[in-house]
């Protein structure tokens, strides 16, 4: 753990510390609306971090990550509604289901050497296939939706994840920091270096003895398991699940916005991306509304323009650029311990 943030400058560490403190303090000064917005921001940061393991580290583009969100959500919700089993147990079933789904998609995709965009299409196909299937599972509410009994919003029952917005807020905050620490560990582990090598050049990675199939499969499974946790949170936070929303391609695309904007393959990118994107989108919506206009898709237009702008002008993402200019991270040549493979 001593190496957790070793690529940050002193200034970067202070900034990170202040940021963490501010986040911890949010429920003490913020109103319900602000807490719910930041909860959503953190949710996107968390799930973006999970997606980043597969794309940013191992270089495998998934546009079907809503599948894992949905599986986690439905598995834990079904256990809760039908058997009274709480989310902390349901998490395991959700992760199992998502990991299994990831393993199947990965095995099929990688065994049959489906690469790049074709692999992305395969992930979409599985998510869509599952969406339509869930539309027809009556036991889980079908297309009419699956509802969890709404808890007492004033109390706090962490065991059943029922309670006040502050409870949910701290749960997602813990998940976000946990995911950051896990990703940092992964990136500096053997498998992490293998992933980076595969991302950069699969053939060369194989030539230095990396079992490419196995390494990629592990990436998909870890990413899927992490994402499914986000699904469990989603189910208990919103208390309603609709296949059309949770498994949709649109949702999958929303999930990748934060890491793409923040910086694919970076550790802080997904968090940074989520924190600039969601508030800006709220601002745009507010601006349009206060101008007296009714534009239901304006937020998505903003997201779309943000994607285009980022890939055109700053394909490595906003975080590396900001971190460089504010001197939050060590630059190549700054000090000998800097390692270029760590994209902070």
């Amino acid at each position: 753990m001593t190496t957790l943030f070793d690529q940050l400058t002193a200034r970067g560490r202070v900034a990170l510390g202040l940021f963490a403190l501010a986040l911890l303090a949010v429920p003490f000064f913020a109103d319900g609306y602000l807490i719910s917005v930041i909860t959503l921001v953190l949710w996107f940061a968390y799930v973006g971090q999970a997606w980043n393991v597969m794309m940013g580290f191992a270089g495998q583009l998934s546009l079907g990550h809503s599948l894992y969100v949905g599986l986690g959500a439905y598995a834990s919700a079904a256990l809760f509604v039908h058997f009274g089993v709480g989310p902390w147990a349901g998490v395991w079933l959700g992760m199992l289901a998502a990991t299994l789904a990831g393993a199947i998609i990965g095995t099929l995709g990688f065994r049959f050497a489906i690469r790049g965009v074709h692999f992305a299409l395969l992930t979409i196909a599985f998510a869509e296939f599952t969406r339509i299937a869930f539309d027809h599972i009556g036991w889980l509410g079908g297309s009419g939706g699956f509802f969890l009994p709404v808890g007492d919003a004033a109390g706090a029952n962490p065991f059943d994840l029922r309670g006040s917005p502050a409870l949910f807020y701290y749960v997602i905050l813990a998940l976000t920091f946990g995911a950051l620490a896990l990703c940092r560990r992964l990136l500096h582990s053997r498998i992490g270096y293998f992933w980076l090598a595969i991302r950069e050049d699969q053939e060369a990675a194989q030539a230095v003895g990396i079992d490419v199939f196995r390494a990629k499969l592990i990436a998909v499974m870890i990413s899927a398991a992490m994402t499914s946790l986000g699904g469990v949170f989603y189910a208990f936070f919103y208390n309603n699940l609709f296949p059309e929303q949770i498994f949709s391609v649109g949702r999958s695309i929303e999930l990748i916005l934060a890491p793409v904007i923040g910086g694919i393959g970076t550790l802080f990118g997904p968090i940074f991306g989520a924190f600039i994107l969601t508030p800006l989108a709220e601002l745009v919506t507010w601006g349009v509304e206060s101008a007296g206009l009714d534009m239901p898709g304006i937020k998505q237009i903003f997201y779309g323009l943000a994607l285009v702008a980022i890939v055109v002008y700053r394909p490595e993402g906003v975080w590396p650029w900001v971190a460089r200019h504010l001197r939050l991270v060590h630059q190549p040549g700054d000090q000998p311990s800097h390692r270029a493979g760590d994209r902070p």
């Binding site: 270096y193 053939e203 003895g209 270029a340």
Partner: peptide, 22 residues
């Protein structure tokens, strides 16, 4: 490889580290 295939975004040291990790 005849046409060199470095892990372009990694440092020189990490390129070799990946080999050594084997």
């Amino acid at each position: 490889f005849q046409l060199v295939k470095p892990f372009g975004d990694l440092s020189v040291e990490d390129n070799v580290l990946v080999g050594a990790l084997h």
